[in-house]
Simulated assay, not measured.
Amino acid sequence: MSEALLPPEILAKADVRHDEYAWRIGDLPEVIEAARAQGLRNIGGQLQIRTEDAIGECDWVQIDACQLIPPMLPWEAQVEMAANVALQDLQLLKAEFNFAREIKEAFPEPVERLLAAGGKIEDAIWFVWYADTEADA
Rank of each mutant, 00 (worst) to 15 (best):
S2Y: 00
A4S: 14
L5S: 10
P7G: 12
P8V: 09
P8C: 08
L11M: 04
A12P: 02
V16A: 11
D19P: 00
Y21N: 03
A22K: 10
W23P: 02
W23T: 03
R24A: 12
I25P: 05
G26L: 06
D27N: 11
D27V: 06
D27A: 12
L28F: 06
P29H: 05
P29W: 04
V31R: 03
I32M: 12
A35I: 04
R36L: 06
A37F: 04
G39N: 11
L40F: 09
N42I: 06
N42Y: 00
N42L: 00
N42R: 02
I43N: 10
G44I: 03
G45W: 04
Q46E: 13
L47M: 09
I49D: 02
I49H: 05
R50C: 07
E57R: 14
E57L: 10
C58E: 09
C58W: 06
D59P: 02
W60Y: 14
V61H: 11
Q62R: 15
Q62H: 13
Q62S: 15
I63A: 07
C66V: 15
Q67I: 06
L68M: 11
L68R: 14
I69V: 15
P70M: 02
P70G: 02
P71V: 03
P71F: 00
L73R: 15
L73H: 13
P74L: 06
P74Q: 09
E76D: 15
E76T: 13
A77W: 06
V85E: 13
V85K: 12
V85L: 09
A86V: 01
A86C: 06
A86W: 02
A86N: 08
L87P: 05
L87A: 03
Q88V: 00
Q88G: 03
L90T: 04
Q91M: 00
Q91W: 00
K94D: 01
K94Y: 01
A95T: 04
E96W: 01
N98I: 08
F99Q: 05
F99D: 04
E102D: 04
E102C: 14
K104W: 00
K104Y: 00
E105I: 00
A106Y: 10
E109S: 12
E109H: 13
E109V: 14
P110S: 07
P110Y: 10
P110F: 10
V111K: 08
E112F: 11
R113Y: 14
A116K: 14
A117G: 12
G118N: 08
K120E: 14
K120D: 15
I121C: 07
I121Q: 07
I121W: 02
I121G: 07
D123V: 05
I125A: 07
I125Y: 05
W126R: 07
F127W: 12
F127E: 01
V128N: 15
W129R: 10
Y130C: 08
A131W: 00
A131V: 15
D132W: 02
D132C: 13
D132M: 12
T133H: 03
T133A: 04
E134G: 11
D136Q: 13
A137Y: 15
